[in-house]
């Protein structure tokens, strides 16, 4: 690595206006966004699912009607992506929590890999569900 390249490859801290997007920042904010979405949309749907089951066949039919509608399937696909993304970046957090994965290249690799694995899992799940 030349002296000039060495300078530009230094890690950039998000300090005031001097920063640019990197995969680590994307995976961090996606973790928060997907976690909030799972809490604010996923948990009400879980409560609706369990509550309608407890309320009887008519209430459950209303729930499955909405979940089977194009809007419901759209929301469920989005939620499953949010779940897998949060799960993968969460697993990445577990690795970081034990003090591993802080080398620049390793950290960058898993920052890119986590959301990609999440998309692959989402595609695999819905391919199985819709084609089975």
């Amino acid at each position: 690595m030349s002296q000039r390249d060495h300078h530009s490859a230094r890690p950039l801290s998000p300090h005031l206006q001097i920063w640019r997007w990197g995969p680590h920042m994307l995976v961090s904010i996606l973790h928060r966004v997907t976690g909030s979405a799972l809490s604010l949309v996923g948990l009400p749907l879980l409560v609706w699912f369990l509550g309608s089951l407890a309320s009887g066949p008519e209430a459950f039919a209303t729930f499955t009607f909405w979940m089977g509608s194009p809007l419901g399937i759209f929301v469920l696909i989005g939620l499953s992506w949010a779940l897998f993304n949060h799960m993968m970046s969460g697993l990445r957090h577990f690795v970081l929590d034990i003090g591993a994965g802080y080398d620049l290249d390793v950290n960058r690799f898993w920052s890119v890999a986590s959301p990609l694995i999440a998309v692959a899992l989402t595609v695999a799940l819905w391919s199985y569900v819709l084609l089975a």
């Binding site: 948990l43 009400p44 879980l46 409560v47 369990l50 509550g51 089951l53 407890a54």
Partner: peptide, 10 residues
Amino acid sequence: GGAAFAIFSV
């Protein structure tokens, strides 16, 4: 409240 409702439903 949400957790209590979910558990009671189950």
